[in-house]
Nucleic acid binder design. Structure first.
Length: 548
RNA sequence: GCGGGUGUAGCUCAGUGGUAGAGCACCACGUUGCCAACGUGGCUGUCGAGGGUUCGACUCCCUUCACCCGCUCCA
């Protein structure tokens, strides 16, 4: 599957434009950069703010809680929270992130089992000069993987004649440091396949809380914003008069040590999420899942993402998390991806009651198709929950239940990148002599465009700058992001605005000053101009922004 | 993590051991006045970083960082 070179050239151009025009810079660039981290420049910050605000407006502020929106099973409420990045370490143990995200892991190449490296020990045989020959793993105290009574004999037989009679007992670290090369083998007595080298799975950023903090005070930067909502479920219910079904929205930074940060901002180690946890009755959760799936897809198309480059993909059964009843990804065909491949913008997951129950009872795991508290070797919960009651009482139906959760989880940076890629466009337009010239234009949806309108005096004299500044100030007073530009020829100024995606340019000319106080309004995409009275400009732009 | 490529002015790039360049952009002045104008003048550089070889390094060698491409990985 070879990558289309046109599309990868296109991505290079987009990255170059982002830098040149101040959308996105590499983080710490003057020091050589920091892999996986990116900064937003003066235009980028406006664009990303607009993405966030469009999401918050559409999901929370403009939501009508009184009647069922189109496609929704019933009416529902939407509220927001803003929770902190560092949370109690137990949160991540119950959420399941800790087990999967923190430790060095080894995989068996043969039986595909995965083990925590620090849980394994090895019985080792060496030759006369102390070089390791064969190492079989085991897990002390484990039901399945402890060292079997027949282990020594079998190991000696497998190691062959070159081995001495001594069997030593080492950790994986000790084994790795020994001279020569020996591959550790699987602790499963029925397998004994070769293990991979230990690989870091420190996918959560670790930090220390407290100035004198020790390893005991380790905490983590959140790998998702969702847990801040779950742990506040009871607070929100008790304080805001919401009734199930309702959603809680949050926008915030999350952190993951991606193994391979790549593709511009697509896979960043610090990124921003826009998440909703929607709490509903178990009986209606499938309908709500469908509703959010469709609604979130429509959100992207309503802001200008072409549906031919956007897909809604349902996860296969083997792709689903152990607790998820259903998950769909909204994916966009980024220019850096191979033909036919898509990158995830948002996942809509039906999480059942996994999260609330985990924070009540302790970390859950699937057993025989049911979620049960995961136990340690002593039969105690492996990771203890809060013990707090996070069930919900419906006082109309007189029913107590644990709500099910639908989670539409979007990446703000990925959405921003998709809007940038989608907006990038090259066309040909005539210059002043009628010759066709190539033009680069960012065709942002007006709601997302960093600058909504540019005010341009046709020439830098004859009273035009004064008029233009007057109009510029009234636009700014109305809260409309505007730019004033009197520098260089008018055609060049139009092209400058095209390149940063400004949807409209207002030009003040001789007619404005000498005759009737009308100005021209030029459209970025069609290049058409209409004339309107200067005093109507603020209203006209406001109306256009509202209606688009 | 492995392999390949790239890194020089704000941007795109040329320069391969001997005084760092071009185009565009930007700024000033003049002329023109609705879609990348023209003229004149001007500004801009830790040559990604560190070390080495050399009388002398953008150039050769080593190390390192970042980005791109292909594998690998991706809760």
């Amino acid at each position: 599957m070879s990558k289309d070179s046109d599309s990868s050239n296109q991505m290079d151009k987009i990255v170059a434009l982002c830098k040149r025009k101040g959308f996105i810079f590499q983080n710490s660039e003057i020091y050589g950069g920091q892999n996986g981290f990116w900064d937003y420049g003066p235009l980028g910050v406006e664009l990303k703010r607009n993405v966030r605000e469009a999401w918050w407006q559409d999901m929370v502020n403009m939501h009508d809680p009184l009647d069922a929106p189109q496609g929704a099973p019933t009416a529902f409420q939407m509220v927001g929270v803003d929770t902190s990045i560092i949370m109690h370490p137990q949160v991540w143990k119950c959420s399941g992130h800790y087990d999967l995200f923190v430790d060095k892991m080894v995989d068996c190449k043969q039986c595909k089992s995965r083990f925590r490296a620090d849980h394994l020990r090895f019985k080792l045989m060496v030759n006369e000069i102390g070089e390791p020959l064969l190492a079989w793993g085991y897990m002390p105290g484990s039901d399945d993987y402890d060292w079997p009574s027949s282990g020594d004999k079998k190991l000696q037989k497998a190691a062959g004649d070159a081995a001495t009679d001594d069997i030593s007992d080492v950790t994986l670290d000790q084994l790795t440091e020994m001279p020569g090369s020996v591959h550790p083998h699987c602790p499963n007595p029925a397998c004994r396949g070769e293990l991979t080298d230990p690989r870091d799975f420190n996918l959560m950023f670790k930090t220390i809380v407290g100035a004198l903090g020790t390893e005991d005070d380790a905490a983590f930067l959140r790998p998702e914003t969702a847990q801040g909502i779950f742990v506040n479920f009871k607070n929100v219910v008790d304080s805001s008069r919401v009734k199930v079904p309702f959603g809680v929205a949050q926008i915030g930074k999350s952190f993951r040590n991606e193994i391979t940060p790549r593709n511009f901002t697509f896979r960043s180690r610090e990124f921003e999420q826009m998440e909703i946890e929607f709490f509903c009755h178990p009986d209606s959760s499938q309908q709500w899942y469908q509703y959010w799936r469709d609604r979130r897809f429509a959100w992207y198309t309503s802001l200008g993402i072409g549906s031919e480059r956007l897909t809604l993909r349902d996860h296969d059964a083997d792709e689903l998390s152990h607790y998820s009843v259903g998950t769909a990804d909204i994916e966009y065909q980024f220019p850096f991806m191979a033909e036919g491949e898509f990158g995830e913008l948002e996942g809509i997951a039906h999480r059942g009651d996994f999260d609330l129950r985990s924070h009540m009872e302790g970390k859950l795991m699937a057993k025989d198709g049911k979620l049960e508290v995961q136990l340690d070797e002593h039969g105690q919960p492996k990771w203890r929950g809060s013990g707090k009651d996070l069930t919900y009482f419906d006082d109309q139906a007189k029913e107590r239940f644990t709500p099910h959760v639908i989670e539409p989880s979007a990446g703000a940076d990925r959405a921003t990148l998709a809007f940038i890629c989608e907006a990038y466009y090259e066309d040909e337009q005539p210059d002043d002599k009628g010759n066709m010239q190539s033009r680069t234009v960012m065709r942002f949806h007006p709601r997302l465009a960093p600058i909504k309108v540019a005010v341009l005096p046709l020439i830098k004299k004859a009273g035009m700058p004064e008029k233009a500044k007057e109009l510029f100030r009234s636009l700014k007073s109305a809260g409309i992001a505007a730019q004033y530009d009197e520098q260089s020829a008018i055609g060049r100024r139009y092209r400058r605005q095209d390149e940063i995606g400004t949807p409209w340019c207002i030009t003040i000319d001789g007619q404005t000053v000498d005759e009737d106080n009308t100005v021209t309004l030029r459209d970025r995409d069609t290049l058409e101009q209409v004339r309107l009275p200067m005093e109507e400009v603020v209203n006209e732009i406001s109306n256009r922004l509202r209606s688009q």
